[in-house]
């Protein structure tokens, strides 16, 4: 056999593609898939938030409660709960009667605040209870949170983690638990609502407060005191803290007063005192 040297001119072992083109294709594909999943989860989360049944909501609520407040300083044996519970129950609208039962918690925390998480868990801080002067203020704040609850804002606020949380709830029925990495780390910062959501919760609150007391006198007292407080450092810190989860602006109070006038609701009325005071347990 005779050997004839021949130069190799074609590269069979190398795919003729520019490395940057290849890289661009890869980055593009992975990013497009990522964005599609992100958007898809967002859409799914909104749909789930709007359609979730009470049993499922209670389950998701418990999961959120356990992940957020397992370590928190909750006063579960506080006697003030005996007063707060029936008051909150009486502030429910008809729609809320179909939803999971309200569960009230007192958070041992000097900064005044109130919040609601899915499943009807409502939190008030001891700082808030100490600052309140009338039952009307308390009723307004509680029903503002109930407004968020009725509008499912807390569920929507969970965002994309809601999909995995509800998946976890479904799997939980069959005894399978998703790892906590997947269900996501939740934080109180997730309980932030849009201006529109706050407004709707406010409207719910004045409607319910008016229904209960027949007037809106003293209902906004807490907010008025907060915004009128001297702006020393401590007060500023408190206002900032409140604002981080609730918008507190003069215009919000004005909006509500304008709405009340439009509906011809009395802005003045007799204050209902808080029996026994809430400052001390």
């Amino acid at each position: 056999m005779k050997y004839t040297p021949r130069e190799i001119t074609s590269e069979v072992n190398i795919t003729p593609v520019h490395p940057l083109v290849n890289f661009g294709y890869l980055v593009g594909t992975v990013m497009a898939t990522g964005i599609a999943i992100y958007v898809g989860l967002g859409v799914a989360a909104t749909q789930i938030a709007l359609r979730m049944g009470p049993a499922m909501e209670a389950k998701v609520g418990d999961a959120v409660f356990n992940s957020l407040f397992a370590e928190a300083n909750l006063l579960e044996q506080d006697r003030r709960l005996d007063y707060l519970r029936p008051l909150a129950e009486s502030l429910r609208s008809d729609a809320l009667l179909e939803r999971p039962k309200l569960k009230l918690h007192i958070l041992d925390e000097t900064i005044p605040n109130a919040m609601v998480i899915p499943g009807g868990h409502i939190f008030v801080t001891t700082g808030l209870l100490e600052d309140l002067e009338t039952e009307n203020e308390l009723a307004f704040i509680l029903s503002h949170e109930l407004g968020h609850y009725e509008n499912r804002d807390a569920l929507r606020g969970l965002g994309r983690s809601l999909v995995l949380l509800s998946l976890n709830g479904l799997l939980g029925l069959s005894g399978v638990q998703l790892p906590s990495v997947l269900t996501g780390s939740l934080s109180l910062a997730d309980l932030r609502y849009s201006r529109d959501q706050e407004r709707r919760a406010d409207i719910y609150a004045i409607e319910i407060t008016h229904q209960r007391y027949g007037h809106l006198g003293h209902a906004l007292g807490f907010f008025e005191r907060l915004s009128a407080e001297d702006l020393d450092l401590e007060a500023l810190a408190r206002i900032m803290e409140w604002q981080s989860t609730h918008p507190l602006t003069q215009s919000r109070i004005e909006d509500l007063e304008a709405l009340a006038e439009e509906r011809d609701w009395a802005l003045e009325g007799k204050a209902t005192p808080i029996p026994g005071g809430l400052g001390r347990p």
Binding site: N13, I14, N22, L26, V27
Partner: peptide
């Protein structure tokens, strides 16, 4: 490039030249 390729699968063209 190769770790991105690991996500989608297919020819790892960047390593083809390296090994060649």
């Amino acid at each position: 490039s190769a770790s991105l390729r690991n996500l989608v699968g297919g020819r790892v063209t960047v390593y083809e030249t390296l090994l060649d």
